[in-house]
Write a protein that binds this DNA or RNA. Sequence first.
DNA 1: TGTACATCAGTGAACGCGCGTTCACTGATGTAC
DNA 2: TGTACATCAGTGAACGCGCGTTCACTGATGTAC
Lengths: 196, 196
Amino acid sequence: VSETKSEKLKRILLETAESRIRAHGLASLRVRDVAKDSGYALGSLYNAYKDLDLLVIAVNSRTLGRLKVVLQEAVASQPDALSQMKVLSVAYLSFAVENPHLWSALFDHQMPEGAEVPQWHLEEHADLIAEVMTPLAVLMPDLDEAALALRARTIFSAVHGIIKLSLEDRFVALDQRALSDELLGFLECYLKGLEA
Amino acid sequence: VSETKSEKLKRILLETAESRIRAHGLASLRVRDVAKDSGYALGSLYNAYKDLDLLVIAVNSRTLGRLKVVLQEAVASQPDALSQMKVLSVAYLSFAVENPHLWSALFDHQMPEGAEVPQWHLEEHADLIAEVMTPLAVLMPDLDEAALALRARTIFSAVHGIIKLSLEDRFVALDQRALSDELLGFLECYLKGLEA
DNA sequence: TGTACATCAGTGAACGCGCGTTCACTGATGTAC
DNA sequence: TGTACATCAGTGAACGCGCGTTCACTGATGTAC
């Protein structure tokens, strides 16, 4: 493999930032810690990335990529649309449980006032919904593209909400098994309601 | 009415902090701005509240109180459990739309590392779920208290998730009417699934 | 192969600012006699 | 009613630190002849 110095720098910093977020969460990510762990000097980070926010976005982009693969594999593992929907939500839950900090970072990160999230990254977020749309299109064949997208988004948000509040609340600490049961029960109700 | 000086100080600071959060959001709340708007000096804030976090919690506590009243009135306005569930979610949506920043602050605020949210405030959060439990108990009479609480929480989280992602995403900007329709459609599916 | 020069990668001290919190102080209010 | 003293409410300059970002500099690598 051939990798220029500047590619290597970007890669190392990306990996370092990722492992710091994985271990300690986005909220306590510090430029100095990334630099120190990476083996590079403080200033090098700004040779590779415009600023810290863009490095975080690079990490989130990577996380989204991995999540997307997981969801695609989940869909591919099932023969019918109904079980595809179920396995999707369980796969999403597993990903969140296994990568809590990286997963939170996807939704917690926000740009400083005045700065905008780059378009390509917004699209990566939107792409996730597409994984839900495929099986949903089978279940609801008479919806047009736009209505389908909206519906997929709604289901995604609901599942996301259930997982998020359950995981962050020490108050009702469900283990993954119980949470997965609850999630499946919920989804089953909803999908049964769709048929009726 | 009789109000001691220290009660007045707390009240004014609370009202000021609330109106600043309402206007600009929790993320840009600054001690100096609160002090300036309140008419008191910087140091006075620390005579009334231990620190900024406790002032924020006081604001959130107030918001939760108002939200609870709204939900209670919604439940009271409907004769049967099914329409109570529906009106609950619409009332929740309306509250979020009308008080976006105050509503976000409820879930965005987090204590600095090492500090804990006071117990009484955690309970206020949990109390919200109770409003969902009442109508849900009618719809699912054979669940025991614990299972009911879990189920209520799940539904609450789902509705919350749908609203949250829809409101914060400029990407798919639904107006309240469209979002309300989507929410009701979703809930209807779910509740229909419950019966079947 | 060697020399002179140009470009590139990497460095880290220093900058600059935002911001929560403190605390010694002041003026107002209350109390005792 | 007046005086001396004690307590209380309120003040804001100063503290202290964390942290993202910059930039003049250095040593390494590449190029030309």
